[in-house]
Write a protein that binds this DNA or RNA. Structure first.
Lengths: 210, 210
DNA sequence: TAGATTGTTAATCGATTAACAATC
DNA sequence: TAGATTGTTAATCGATTAACAATC
């Protein structure tokens, strides 16, 4: 039943999932409630119930939600029951950090290829993956049916690289490049720019920082 | 005139600023319009005009906005006219990447201290900064009046570290730790979690990824 | 049965957009 | 003057919340 769920709702599901996983580890109780979740996440219980109701009825009156069951359901909804292969473009410091982050692997995202243009980096090991030269990127995407890319390249080559990725079949891009990328409608894009985040916060800081 | 600007508006200002800076570099024209900006950012021109109108009148009918002037104004509004000192907590791979990112420095954020608990890292150089042992963190914050921290530590110590930072006077935290942190109302917090971003995007991916 | 909590409806709140008078 | 574009008002759209019947 994929009517037309607001993107803002989809945006919250991974947060719910993360907290539920945490609950399932902390906890001997098999159940939780929208109220407990809401309290932990700092949002309203009505919102959680409303969000979940877009996808079905997962709770029971009086007892709330079975944690393990709700985790399963959220994973199913978000297409997290399978292992996703991910390519990483850019083997600089940030690429390094991403390649070494164990959280991807643990949650079903496996970085299988790393690409860069710098001859000095090509052939070096990052995590357990050898950095490959960029020329092979289309083949890697197509042969392995890879749908997800992480982009950690300099701004100057970001749009060109994006176009290449999409042409080769990539459908979701997580980018760390601080520019607005042009992508067709069928491609998902998600930005991470620490400067933008810092600049939002300084608005709330008192100016006199002696 | 700080009535009560919606946070969602504040969130867009750095995006406008980023695009304006870009425009000012690409371009010989001194002016732009809400329409041009809107087109580049993929949002509506009305929204841009509305957002800016919260803070004053920066444009001229018929000619639009002077790019340099609007940049100045946005920087003033966001408190970006001064240099902000930032401490970085966590000198792992991610800390490394952050310490080497030149964009901070260029945009008025200077990472002046890096802290870690790992004795193997303490004393090593990262960028141009020596990693210090965590014990000195309160003194560094207080003596330098630092208000902004970037948190790149393991999940298990994140809340404790957050509490310490806030107690010492930190008011804005950019965190890469994948948990919901509890902070008092006067503290700004901004999250960056690549897994959450990936999990949002997989919702839109077709499940059959053979 | 009494207490708790869901899923959902209706009311409220807030954000976006359309439209246009003002004016450069 | 004619054309362009602002700032703003009013209309629309969408998201959040309050409330409660249903029911475990």
């Amino acid at each position: 039943m994929t009517k037309l769920i607001p993107a803002i709702v989809i945006g919250r599901l991974p947060i719910y999932l993360r907290e539920l996983v945490r609950l399932s580890k902390e906890n001997t109780r098999p159940n939780t409630s929208s109220q407990e979740l809401a309290h932990r996440l700092g949002i309203s219980s009505a919102q959680i119930r409303k969000d979940l109701s877009h996808f079905g009825e997962f709770g029971k009156q009086g007892t709330g939600y079975n944690i393990a069951y709700l985790i399963e359901q959220l994973q199913r909804i978000l297409h997290l029951t399978e292992q996703w292969e991910v390519i990483l473009v850019g083997a600089g410091y940030l690429g390094h950090a991403l390649a070494h982050y164990g959280g991807f692997q643990r949650r079903g995202f496996r970085i299988t290829h790393v690409f860069d243009t710098d001859p000095a980096l090509i052939g070096t090991e990052m995590g357990e993956i050898v950095v490959q030269k960029i020329e092979g990127i289309e083949a890697a995407i197509q042969e392995n049916g890879i749908k997800i890319a992480i982009l950690a390249v300099p701004r100057s080559v970001a749009q060109k690289m994006t176009d290449r990725l999409i042409k080769a079949g990539i459908l979701s891009i997580l980018t760390y490049t601080p520019i607005q990328l042009k992508v067709p409608d069928h491609v998902q894009i998600s930005y991470s720019d620490p400067l933008v985040q810092l600049q939002q916060m300084t608005y709330y800081l008192p100016r006199d920082a002696d």
